[in-house]
Write a protein that binds this DNA or RNA. Structure first.
Length: 806
DNA sequence: TGCTTTTGCATTTTT
DNA sequence: TGCAAAAGCA
């Protein structure tokens, strides 16, 4: 048992001289506005800081920490400061350090819910039925485990997918329900077998000495509930609690906090109910709405002065969010007057929208608008769903506009990285069965389903790990032919690597707590880095990719190299594994200037001078699914998402929608988002239909390039049903010209305007792609009709043809 | 076992 | 439409 050695966290060196701090003047207070100062000064008792977008919440939060230290109310190791993301935790650390003028190594309780939970849980693992060196499973492992249970339970995995079970169990854990506590109202979940499988899953996890993410919080909560003495110790230690993004807490996190805070009640929650956008993953807006009831006598401070956006942008955002009920209510204001109104523009279809935004980005980059030239880094396109990104990527690729997509696959989620990590896990703990399964036949060792099932059976029969099972199977010759030799080599390899780890650092044999984030100087022994290379070499994993001739192989080897390099910053393999299981991020900040494309969710907490918000169409945004599944609640969350989107913009915010959009390959006519009607008219500029300048088919300047500057004089144009206007537009928009002249336009430009790869439409053959060009004849690969040779003037660019009948 | 064809499906995502 | 996973085939 490793009870309270009181080593790292509690007895950590306290780098600050309390007396010096207390005597020092407090210049950080002068930097704050009255509301911020009030939030900082109210150190004792419960405080709810309602911080609107861009109101300097992090500043207030960090000042508060500094103030706690400066007044001597708390020592650095007595402050619990919780965030959701590692990024937020890092930022807070950096800012506190900067304000103090020294490092925050003495603040061990500043981190994410999960990282702090791990720290607590490792100390008391045995009380949760685990060993302190438990592993943290990733989603992959989780699903694999559940699949096994589902198969074992004779459930048709088609009808009841593992994903569904995973989601269900996750939602239960978010509500802090252990299997025993799942209410009977949930009994019908997952074909009536949800609770049963949940129990089995937890049993399996315990047997594997593993946790999933939900467990980290859940175990801590149940631990605190079952052991008041332990809870009391933490309550005594953690005198002051600060919580960021409180509106995003789920029930488990809420209980976690309440348990820790209930003794001294020095809890300061910072959040914005209007920015609660994670209800679908368990966040309870109710937590923040209920704060004053939970903590009677709480001081509520509103930060409403906004330092980010222009008044028009704020007014537009306020107008939209005011449509929600159940708000705590805030009114953002700014001293900055003037600026551009929020721009609103409708487009014919999604492609045109992408084209127009691309052109706008370029115009802004050149500085040809009323704004000085803007770096691409200052511009962002924020979409509701990631599939919307494609249109922009396509367009930006064709015009050569550098962009970055945030939210792609992460480094640590890549196949090769997970494989390599599984090898490391196996080396660290050879009884990690999930890791074993993952790599026992990667690279191919001739161990197919049959051989693996034999191993499983042997292991299960004598209740040992898969590695031991394999060992025994080999010993009694239960496995034949070529697989045997390779399995032998694999088992020996794992033994060797494990021995190497024990050798290098004998003291970690029983998994003493490793520092969570290994700061600063790595130890001089390069043992584990070399060992990692050796593992990848000896296992044949590296050569597997070297022999692979697919185009991705080179990249994968690169990634592996990067992984090994990342190891250098840690002082052991297990320290690294711990870090990675909690920190799944890839923040490769590239130097080159690029426009950012990301989801609205991903944009929370960020800001950009110029923001584009495309796809404001009912069904897409607000998302139909959200409304179907969660009704009014869903709609309100979507509205908050709109609010988040608008408030990301500092100076220029452009909202757009398209009349037609291809949804799963089908053309659909779209209605402008209902949120558009909620934009307050005086703060919106309605742009008339865009001209086509530099558009696709070589007709630069043709359609009257300056049309873009025209603005509707009647601001309420968009109050009329938007789609009617769009119908009108379909008749008058410059590029289509009056119908009769269309043919002529094509005649003039057909030959030069098509290039290979263009999408075209033919009245008889339908849609196709230009495969080759010979003079005025095109080889076109039609989607339905095969390849045909067509005279150019008989086809039109595909987007020209998309006059969807109303 | 590995490749090709077919089918089914399709928000938002952190830890 | 386009992708990923599963079935089907050599």
């Amino acid at each position: 048992m490793n009870g309270f050695d009181e080593t790292d966290a509690f007895e950590a060196a306290i780098p600050l001289s309390q007396r010096a701090m207390a005597a020092r003047p407090q210049p950080y207070l002068d930097d704050l506005n009255p509301a911020q100062r009030a939030a900082v000064l109210a150190l004792d008792g419960p405080v709810l800081m309602l911080a609107g977008a861009g109101t300097g919440k992090t500043k207030a939060l960090t000042s508060r920490i500094v103030h706690l230290l400066a007044t001597g109310k708390a020592r650095p190791n007595e402050i619990l400061a919780v965030t959701f993301t590692n990024k937020a935790a890092r930022e807070m650390k950096e800012r506190v350090a900067r304000m103090l003028g020294q490092s925050v190594e003495g603040m061990p309780w500043m981190g994410t819910f999960h990282s702090i939970s791990v720290k607590i849980l490792r100390r008391h693992a045995e009380l949760a039925g685990l060993k302190s060196n438990f592993t943290i499973l990733d989603t992959d492992d989780q699903l694999r485990l559940m699949k096994q249970l589902i198969v074992a339970a004779n459930i048709d995995e088609k009808r009841w997918p593992a994903r569904m079970l995973a989601g269900l169990i996750d939602s239960w854990k978010n509500r802090a329900w252990t299997p025993a506590k799942v209410p009977s109202s949930e009994a019908s979940a997952y074909n009536n077998r949800g609770t049963e499988l949940y129990q089995q899953y937890q049993d399996r996890l315990r047997a594997l000495n593993a946790c999933d993410f939900g467990d980290l919080l859940l175990h801590v909560v149940t631990l605190f509930q079952a052991h008041p003495d332990i809870l009391a110790q933490y309550q005594r230690w953690l005198k002051y609690i600060l919580v960021d993004e409180y509106q995003d807490t789920n029930v488990a996190q809420y209980l976690w906090l309440r348990l820790l805070a209930q003794a001294h009640r020095n809890i300061c929650c910072v959040g914005d109910d209007d920015q609660s956008i994670y209800g679908w993953r368990g966040a309870e807006v109710g937590n923040i709405l209920r704060f004053e009831k939970d903590f009677p006598g709480a001081e509520v401070v509103r930060l409403e002065q906004n330092y980010r956006s222009t008044e028009h942008i704020l007014a537009a955002a306020s107008g939209v969010i005011s449509g929600n009920s159940d708000r705590l209510g805030k009114t953002l204001w700014t001293e900055a007057k003037g600026g551009e109104k929020v721009r609103l523009i409708g487009h014919w279809d999604g492609e045109e929208e992408a084209r127009w935004i691309g052109d706008e980005v370029e115009a802004l980059q050149r500085g040809s608008r009323s704004m000085e030239a803007q770096s691409l880094d200052h511009m962002a396109i924020l979409v509701r769903a990631s599939h919307q990104m494609r249109a922009f990527e396509d367009r930006f690729l064709t015009i050569g506009l550098p962009y970055r997509v945030i939210g792609g696959p992460r480094f640590y989620e890549r196949l090769e990285i997970r494989d390599a990590m599984a090898y490391f896990r196996l080396a660290v703990s050879p009884d990690d069965d999930l890791a074993f399964e993952r790599v026992v036949n990667t690279p191919k060792r001739g161990l197919g389903d049959k051989a693996q099932q034999e191993i499983q059976k042997t292991a299960r029969a004598s209740g040992m790990s898969l590695l031991e099972g394999a060992r025994e199977l080999l010993a009694r010759g239960g496995i034949g032919g070529k697989g045997a030799g390779q399995l032998r080599a694999f088992v020996d390899g794992v033994d060797r690597w494990h021995a190497a780890i024990l050798n290098a650092r004998p003291e970690v044999a029983d998994a003493v707590i490793e520092p969570m984030v290994p700061d600063a100087v790595p130890q001089s022994d390069m043992g584990h880095v070399r060992l990692a290379e050796v593992i990848l070499e000896e296992s044949g994993y590296t050569s597997m990719w070297q022999n692979d001739k697919t185009p991705e192989a080179a990249g994968r080897l690169e990634n592996l190299k990067e992984l090994v390099k990342a190891l250098e910053q840690f002082d052991s393999l297990q320290g690294f594994l711990e870090h990675v299981s909690l920190i799944m991020e890839n923040d490769t900040e590239e130097a080159a200037e690029k426009v950012t494309i990301m989801t609205l969710h991903g944009a929370k907490g960020l800001e950009f001078p110029v923001v584009f918000l495309p796809g404001w169409e009912d069904g897409l945004f607000p998302s139909q699914r959200s409304m179907n599944e969660s009704g009014q609640k869903g709609l309100e969350e979507e509205r908050r998402l709109a609010y988040v989107g608008i408030t990301r913009a500092e100076r220029l915010c452009t909202i757009s929608f398209a009349a037609n959009r291809r949804v799963y390959g089908q053309w659909q006519s779209q209605l402008p988002s209902r949120f558009i009607d909620e934009l307050p008219v005086p703060h919106v500029d309605v742009l008339t239909p865009p001209g086509l300048y530099g558009g696709g088919y070589g007709a630069a300047g043709m359609g009257g390039g300056s049309r873009i500057e025209e603005r509707a004089t009647k601001a309420d144009v968009y109050n009329s049903p938007g789609w009617r206007r769009l119908q009108d537009r379909s008749a008058t928009r410059p590029i289509s010209q009056p119908r009769e002249s269309k043919q002529q336009v094509i005649d003039l430009d057909a030959v030069s305007s098509f290039t290979e790869g263009d999408r075209v439409f033919h009245t008889k053959f339908g849609y196709g792609t230009v495969a080759a060009i010979e003079g005025d004849k095109l080889d076109i690969a039609f989607d339905k009709a095969g390849v045909k040779k067509i005279i150019a003037r008989f086809v039109v660019p595909a987007h020209e043809a998309d006059d969807v009948p109303f």
